[in-house]
Design a protein around this nucleic acid. Sequence first.
DNA 1: ATTAAACCCTAGTAACATGGTAGGATTACC
DNA 2: GGTAATCCTACCATGTTACTAGGGTTTAAT
Lengths: 137, 137
Amino acid sequence: MLVSTRGRYGLRSMVDIAINATTGPVPLRAIAERQGISESYLEQVFALLRKAGLVKAVRGSYGGYVLTRPPDNITVGEIIHALEGPLVSVNCVTEGKEVSCDKKDTCHTQFFWKKLTDQINEVLSSTTLQDLVGQDL
Amino acid sequence: MLVSTRGRYGLRSMVDIAINATTGPVPLRAIAERQGISESYLEQVFALLRKAGLVKAVRGSYGGYVLTRPPDNITVGEIIHALEGPLVSVNCVTEGKEVSCDKKDTCHTQFFWKKLTDQINEVLSSTTLQDLVGQDL
DNA sequence: ATTAAACCCTAGTAACATGGTAGGATTACC
DNA sequence: GGTAATCCTACCATGTTACTAGGGTTTAAT
């Protein structure tokens, strides 16, 4: 169970934009170089971020990507969720949707998975992009 | 990012044994029936649990599996770890081993992944099999 | 000794996910 | 019109998942 490159690259890229967006939209080319990631693979990552409404694309020359909200208003959870889907879900406790395995009434593990999922979501939703940017290294 | 069937089946099976081991070793046949899981698939799950030293096999007729320690001395973390590998690791924060990506000094995301991993491990290591067994349904 | 219940081990397999690459189409600044 | 960028789709190699199948080994009961 490990976070895939999509999630890791995506989070790093969002931080990159937050830091480097002072002079206008940040092109993938620049992110790819700074972060050492293939540009065409980044395109696919950003397609997901765009669909999730976290970034906006500016096409054409001098274009690039910008955040749609200030960094302190974007949680890491939103980013990871957009790229990886719900984190550590177990079907029967996946948000909202009641997949309801037929063993529900006799399942001793259900409550544990819920607790774990809740804990993870707590961390994800309480950390913003700004928290990462403004951090001492 | 979801927990695979190996992890889910394994945890449920361990709970099953904890509950049903009163009359001696619990055969996979019985677990498979009660939990609605294919017996031969369970064999592979139990190979992992056995390698991790969490269960002991009793071969031959009237054999089966028994826990090697009392349920209040087996954490859910040990079980999941045996079946799924380290949970939500991101290479650069994987236990002990310093995979050390070359961006370490400039990486703003590292601290977040560590925090997340720590939180998850906290839940995993503080919940025992007994906690699941002794739970109201 | 035979049988049967159980664990043990390996191989195979269909479906899907991962981590990309390649190539072209579109948009917009100059 | 040229160029820099996003966009979109298809492809691909590799690995993982979730199994099934089939045989071998151990041991208790008869």
